[in-house]
Design a protein around this nucleic acid. Structure first.
Length: 241
DNA sequence: TCATTAAATTGTT
DNA sequence: AACAATTTAATGA
């Protein structure tokens, strides 16, 4: 498909407000910021557009400025397995960028999104020059490792309510997605795609979670009231057991 | 700014 | 999967 080329064609430099939406940018020293800002590109991705594909050589380290992306991979049986969503403020691909290898997963826009890219060479330059940037990357790798382990656990769970809750918890991870805050812009349909359930079942799970004051359902988004409960609470659909 | 209309999203069967 | 109800976004006076 010619679809992922459009991302290249529409890219442009970032505006100040978009730079402010990059969590690691303000960690840099002035001269490092100049270099980063000079290299950073941004492009709009339409729903279904690929930001990167499995097997392609790494050219950029990507981040979500606005919108919502889906991280997935195809297993040996040819089925698509979704790892996680990437909400605003999330940066990904540092593992493969570090090794200059090929992408190990597909990243696809779930809705119209603004995606920023930092060239791998600049990524390495920042690693060589900024301790703060190194700390950011280290923390990022550590958090994501935890996420992947959690994702495996989620996959083994049968209870849809818990699956939805845990998946939501990863999206509300403040370390990885600092721009999400208390309210995550995501439709129930989009969440259904991420979790692998029907929209109806997701709607039912969200209602249950809302009844327990763990979240609040809003139009076009969700507000988290109790993140710890989202991560760990055992939900019983029956009345007080 | 307000009223009307279309589109998107949600709640329910 | 389909439908109605609700919320938001877009349009134009």
């Amino acid at each position: 498909m010619a679809r992922d080329n459009t991302l290249y064609q529409r890219r442009r430099p970032l505006m100040q407000a978009e730079l402010d939406a990059i969590p690691w940018f303000h960690l840099l020293a002035p001269e490092e910021r100049l270099r980063a800002a000079d290299d950073l590109k941004i492009a709009e991705a339409a729903p279904g557009d690929f930001v990167c594909r499995v097997g392609r050589p790494v050219t950029y380290w990507f981040g979500v400025v606005d919108g919502l992306l889906k991280m997935s991979a195809d297993n040996a049986q040819g089925q698509t397995m979704t790892f996680t969503g990437v909400p605003p403020g999330g940066w990904f691909g540092e593992g493969t960028a570090l090794k200059r290898e090929a992408y190990r997963y597909n990243i696809q826009a779930l809705r119209k999104s603004l995606v920023a890219g930092l060239h791998v060479d600049t990524f390495h330059w920042l690693l060589d020059h900024s301790i703060a940037f190194n700390r950011f990357i280290m923390n990022q790798l550590n958090e994501r490792l935890g996420q992947f382990i959690a994702a495996r656990e989620i996959d083994r769970m049968t209870n849809p309510d818990i699956r939805v809750a845990r998946s939501l918890a990863t999206l509300f991870n403040p370390a990885l997605y600092p721009n999400v805050g208390q309210v995550l812009r995501i439709t129930q349909q989009e969440l259904a795609y991420l979790v692998g359930l029907s929209r109806q079942r997701v709607n039912e799970a969200l209602t249950t979670l809302a009844d327990q004051n763990v979240i609040r359902v809003e139009y076009g988004g969700l507000r988290v009231l109790d993140l710890a409960a989202l991560r760990s609470h055992i939900f019983s659909r029956e009345s007080g057991s």
